[in-house]
Structures are given as C-alpha cells and as structure tokens.
C-alpha cells in the first residue's frame, strides 16, 4: 500500500496533496501513512543505485567532497546536523565552521565559537580597523589519499578502505592519540564516551545506504557538495574539471586531500 502512495506522490507531489484533500485518494490510505510509513531504513535514495552495491567496497563510484566557501553563510546547519547524527559530545567537533575577517591593514582574524554550532549571532567587536573582507570556511575530514593518521596508527584501528574512505575501528582503537598528533587538519579527537579516536567519516554509513552526508543534505545554500567523479554529469565532476578556483588545504603536507575547496582564500589554513 505504501508503494502506491509513494509512487503516486513522487509522480506529482502537488497533485497528490490536492487529491488527498479533495478525497480522490481514499482517506483510509492517508491514515496508513503515520503508522507504517517512513523509517530511517527506507528513506528514498539520494544517490541512486547505492543500495544495490553490496560489495565490501564501493565499486562503481569515486566520491569527492567539495566545499564552496563563496556560498557558505555560516548558519551552522551542518554542525547541528552532524552533532545530531553522531551525538558528538560537547567540545568535540567532527565538522566545524570558521569565520575569517580581514581588516584594511590585512590582519586576519579567525574564530569559531563552539565550532560554529550555535551559528554566528554577533559580529566581532574586537577589530580596531575597518573590515575589508569576511567569509566562512567549513572544515571536515580531508579524506587524504595519503592519510598520516592511518600511517601512524600502531594497531591498524584507523584504516583506509579501497574506495578511499578513512575510517576508525572503535573496537580496536587503543586511544593512544598518535593519529590526533599526526593529522595536519586537526579533525580528530578522543571521544570521551567511547574512549576511542573519532572523526568525520563523510557519513560513510549514510553514503553506503544511498543518502548524502548529513551536512551536505542540510546545507541550505549548497555550499557543501558530495558526488561521484565517475559521473561526468555530476556537479563535483564539473567543478573539478572546469576552470574554477579550486584548491586543497595544506598541500605542502603531501597528504593529497580528497576534500576540495572552491574559492579558497590564501588566508585559510
């Protein structure tokens, strides 16, 4: 019965509502919806076909993550969604948003109160000169091609999958903290609940189930983009293969991040 409703709805959403309201679709059907409907297991796929891919590694796709800092409005939706998704303890950040302010004297002021989780409600009041430029920079795991966290992990608890995800085995991590020291981007922390290293996974569990990373899903201005580089029609492919100002963080570290930034300014570290 649900299939019928869903099919009907995806065909023409507005018509569906109208039909329901005008009684064309039986009222009894409508009653079914709240009871047996959407569960987290059967949310419509956002990345089509992912649920058919049951191999240990993602076979047909090469995922890339792009942050467009020319679009970010610093609302912190991503941070809120991320904290909700992983129930991240206070004071630890899988993702955060930084605010950059540059004054007329070219001084750079950066802040990220509570990792941007509460948004940016107030302007900085401690800047003595007129402000020339200001922008937001979201940060998350760089999913390095040569991850130094994996290199230093003594027990193989942090590992890189064949499809390029850098993940943590919470059942084997000893929490020595070496990966935290080794990560040039400071995306790692020790989760006080599990007492193991923790970090952004690009929502591996969602991606494998055909959903976008939660931060990408909630971003109201498409500042965070996630897509398949094997698909030449995808937005990420086009951004990375057409003339855009695209760069990565700390290229000198040699980690080769798969996280790209559009419109990155030289002030950003």
């Amino acid at each position: 019965m649900m299939d019928v409703i869903q099919k009907e709805m995806s065909r023409d959403r507005r018509a569906f509502i109208k039909n329901v309201l005008s009684g064309t679709i039986a009222g009894s059907l409508l009653l079914v919806i709240p009871a047996g409907a959407m569960d987290l297991g059967n949310i419509p796929e956002q990345i089509t076909g992912m649920r058919d891919d049951t191999e240990p590694f993602i076979t047909k796709r090469k995922f890339a993550f792009i942050v467009d800092i020319t679009r970010c409005i610093g609302c912190g939706s991503c941070c809120v969604a991320d904290k909700n998704e992983y129930q991240v303890p206070d004071g630890m950040y899988r993702t955060w948003v930084e605010r950059y302010v540059i004054d007329d004297e070219d001084n750079v002021y950066v802040d990220s109160p509570n990792g941007g989780l509460d948004g940016y409600q107030e302007p900085r009041k401690d800047i003595p000169h007129p402000v020339r430029d200001t922008f937001f920079v979201p940060k998350l795991c760089n999913m390095c091609e040569h991850p130094s966290c994996v290199q230093v992990c003594p027990v193989g608890a942090t590992y890189q999958t064949d499809d390029g995800f850098v993940l943590i085995d919470a059942k084997r991590c000893v929490a020595c903290g070496y990966c935290i020291q080794a990560c040039p981007y400071s995306v790692r922390f020790i989760n006080p609940k599990t007492k193991t290293a923790d970090k952004c996974t690009w929502c591996y569990h969602r991606v494998r189930k055909g959903l976008l990373p939660v931060c990408v899903n909630v971003c109201p201005v498409q500042a965070r983009k996630f897509g398949d580089l094997n698909d030449k029609e995808s937005e990420v492919y086009k951004i990375l293969h057409q003339p855009h100002v695209v760069s990565i963080l700390k290229p000198g570290m040699g980690n080769k991040p798969s996280l790209h930034y559009v419109g990155l300014r030289r002030e950003v570290v």
């Binding site: 297991g41 949310i43 969604a81 129930q87 993940l167 591996y204 569990h205 899903n217 909630v218």
Partner: peptide, 10 residues
C-alpha cells in the same frame, strides 16, 4: 561502520 544507525532523515 556501515551499520551505524542513521539518525537524520531527509
């Protein structure tokens, strides 16, 4: 990791 519970829908 794949079976981590999904908490946010769409």
């Amino acid at each position: 990791e794949m079976n981590r519970p999904i908490r946010n829908g769409t």
